[in-house]
Write a protein that binds this DNA or RNA. Structure first.
Lengths: 157, 157
DNA sequence: GTCTACTCCGATCAAAGTAATCGGAGATCA
DNA sequence: TGATCTCCGATTACTTTGATCGGAGTAGAC
């Protein structure tokens, strides 16, 4: 399935919203609070709060306490990539467990494994894709983005 | 995380093994049974059986009953892509649930959703990547594959 | 200075998906 | 006919994810 979790969905929606308000034309620089986002997109408030906490902890957004408080992007929308958002919520991304094995851990199949190398290449390619797309790309107008279809070349093609 | 399940791991290993025996130099055309693969790669026998059943059901391999029975690729290794294998085991792949909504189903966030379009593009790109890599590419020699880094272009880049 | 509204954080519970197991039926070949 | 294999459905345990709760700390309003 390769699905991303709902939390990640919520994170993407929230960040997109924050970015579009913060850098929009109507009320630029306005601070956004959790409740506003939750109501706008029909997301459970408490769960969204946890998601925003995680984003804040990993430095993508900064929080402001007290009344009239809320969240702001910690850096510009151009400097926030989808890969960063994903990793903030779901941890290091990888198709396989063996792609981030620590010392001592060991995959039983490892020494006989015939698919590790090609999978790592695919994984790397997906990572580059996610890392080349920024929050800013996701915002605004209709054409949004154009993706060149990536290609994989076999040894004898 | 974007992880693939262990079942899919097993499927990839099994298919790679079958392909390399079936089209290898030592015993070309030999039929491979479940036990052989399970022992070779230390996979639980019963679980692997289920995986192979699924692959057989979706037409990637064909089964031969009785003694000396086992599995063979249903078509050549060049014609089996990673995307097909993944979908056989995990069902239709998609980053988001809303990418394969049936009639009647409905995502609460849908009409306010600001990330649907860009996510579908990313998803499409990943799909093309997985679909362009075949079982044959995964076999054999060391260089295996070369992946051109995919690029995403924003509206104003 | 107190009160209120908000973020922050840890702990917990329920639901869903995945991994693994079991038992038996049917097919093929010796 | 019997042994060996695939096939298939049902079931159990486990891990991850989704969602909820309660309380602590902080900044601004009065």
């Amino acid at each position: 399935m390769l699905k991303i979790s709902k939390k990640t969905d919520y994170a993407l929606m929230a960040l997109q919203h924050i970015a579009s308000v913060q850098f929009g034309d109507v009320t630029p620089g306005r601070v956004i609070n959790t409740k506003e986002i939750a109501e706008e997109y029909h997301i459970p408030l408490e769960l969204l709060a946890k998601v925003l906490q995680a984003l804040s902890k990993s430095g993508l957004i900064e929080s402001h306490n007290g009344p009239k408080g809320g969240y702001l992007l910690a850096r510009s929308a151009e400097q926030i990539t989808i890969a960063q958002i994903l990793e903030s919520i779901e941890g290091p991304l990888g198709l396989t467990d063996c792609s981030h094995e620590k010392d001592g851990e060991f995959c039983m199949q490892r020494e006989h494994c015939n698919i590790r190398t090609p999978l790592l290449k695919v994984q790397d390619s997906i990572y580059q894709l996610l890392n080349s797309m920024t929050l800013h790309n996701m915002m605004g107008g209709t054409p949004l983005i154009t993706i060149q279809s990536p290609s994989v070349q076999g040894v004898d093609r």
